[in-house]
């Protein structure tokens, strides 16, 4: 079937199998490999993207659900394609060493940005709770938590996303 949606700011039309998962569509068909797949039980959160501004696990979403929607992936975070400028949350992860192997990072960033959008003044407890659906095996979370709080503050200082 044919679906049309806005992908990282650009109108996109693709032919998909109705049973295709969004994570596979992005990775295999659209060559956007920044969205990662770390599990097969919807637990790890490496695959989180924003569907109409809401964080969703793209490994658990069927491609037809995209029709008419707006999708943001890690590749769309910087705004202009090819720009080297980082989103404030990306900048905060770099500044606070919130990543090691980088595999969980795209999902962490997408979850963190959504968390920060909803809440201007995130507490440590809120961040830790809000990251419950994202597993990181490398960092022990401490620097991710620090980064998310700093990133949220920076996002709001910059006037939203």
């Amino acid at each position: 079937m044919q679906i049309s949606f806005i992908l990282n700011g650009r109108p996109t039309s693709v032919e998909v199998e109705p049973s295709m998962l969004v994570a596979d569509l992005l990775r295999e068909q659209l060559d956007l490999t920044g969205t990662h797949v770390g599990c097969d039980t919807s637990q790890c959160g490496a695959c989180v993207v924003h569907l109409d501004g809401v964080p969703v696990k793209s490994c658990t979403l069927l491609a037809p659900a995209l029709d008419g929607a707006t999708l943001l992936t890690i590749e769309g975070l910087q705004g202009e394609p090819g720009s080297n400028r980082l989103h404030p949350m990306q900048e905060a992860f770099r500044e606070h060493h919130g990543l090691q192997c980088g595999f969980c990072t795209p999902g962490m960033l997408m979850t963190a940005i959504a968390l920060a959008q909803d809440k201007p003044n995130l507490t440590e407890a809120e961040v830790r709770h809000g990251l419950e659906g994202n597993i990181c095996r490398c960092t022990g979370y401490q620097n991710i938590v620090v980064a998310v709080m700093a990133g949220a503050a920076a996002m709001h200082a910059a006037g939203g996303e």
Partner: peptide, 8 residues
């Protein structure tokens, strides 16, 4: 290494 990981 961060730039490439942060940007997918």
């Amino acid at each position: 290494e961060d730039q490439r990981f942060l940007t997918g």
